[in-house]
Each structure stands twice: as structure tokens, then as C-alpha cells.
């Protein structure tokens, strides 16, 4: 499968390309490239739509984590709290995208982090968990 993104706006340029065969290891590489495309597209889209992470962070009390380079709210979240925060983002200009960003701050990512991805693949390729993608 061929995957290619070319996007440009002012000084912002994003070019990501790859061609992959239908083998387990190439499907994983393809997923990795797609995840990177999603991350770049999402970041730029939020910027273009004027979604301010600080505004969302103030709603739920998330703090900026320098190591992770994002706002994070640790600990277990009660449904009542989540409901209250959803009610507040519902009133913003871009409710769906703002709600997705809120949930990312709460630890609900829709794409695994690059670190998790790599650690998982490493663990699985060692064959210690009963599956070895590189041998299939």
C-alpha cells in the first residue's frame, strides 16, 4: 500500500511518504507512518481551528508535563467529573475536537503513543508473549 501526505501552509510543510507490502512487518511500518500522519494532521488542524489546549486544560485542571510535552491530568476520573467537563467543552466553538483533546489530557488516546507502540513491538518481536510478527 502506498501512503503519502503532502501539505503546506506558509512556513509549515509536512511531507510523509511510504510504500508497503502486505507482510506483517510492513503492515506495522505502515501503521507507524499513518500514526505519525495522524499526529501531524491533528496538531495542525487544532491550530487552524483555534483550539487552545490551555483553555481545555483549565476546564479539567490538567497540568503541562514537560517530559510528555502535553497537558495531563493524572489519577482516576469519576464519571460525574467527566460529565461536568464534557458539558463545558460542549459549549466551545469546536466541541467534537475539543472533547477529543480533553479526553487525551485525561489519558484516553485514540492512537497509542510512539513509545508504547515501539515497546509493544519490541516485546512481541522477542517472542516472549507467544507472537513474533517478524517470523510470520
Amino acid at each position: 500500500m502506498r501512503v503519502a501526505l503532502e501539505a503546506e501552509e506558509g512556513k509549515w510543510v509536512c511531507i510523509k511518504k511510504g510504500e508497503f507490502a502486505d507482510s506483517p512487518e510492513e503492515r506495522i511500518d505502515c501503521a507507524r507512518l499513518l500514526a505519525s500522519i495522524v499526529e501531524s494532521a491533528r496538531r495542525k488542524l487544532r491550530q487552524e481551528k483555534g483550539i487552545d489546549p490551555e483553555t481545555i486544560a483549565r476546564i479539567c485542571g490538567a497540568k503541562y508535563n514537560r517530559r510528555q510535552k502535553k497537558y495531563v491530568l493524572k489519577g482516576r476520573k469519576k464519571p460525574e467529573q467527566v460529565k461536568e467537563w464534557l458539558e463545558r467543552v460542549k459549549g466551545l466553538d469546536e466541541p467534537d475536537e475539543s472533547a477529543v483533546l480533553l479526553l487525551e489530557m485525561l489519558g484516553y488516546d485514540t492512537v497509542p503513543s510512539q513509545k508504547t507502540f515501539e515497546e509493544y513491538l519490541k516485546k512481541m518481536s522477542l517472542g516472549t508473549e507467544g507472537y513474533c510478527p517478524r517470523e510470520n
Binding site: M1, V3, A4, L5, E6, A7
Partner: peptide
């Protein structure tokens, strides 16, 4: 070309 995207033949 602000955005060109190709994947899965689309």
C-alpha cells in the same frame, strides 16, 4: 497544494 493525501488506492 495545501493538502494531497493518498492511501489504500484513494
Amino acid at each position: 497544494m495545501p493538502v494531497k493525501f493518498e492511501a489504500a488506492g484513494e
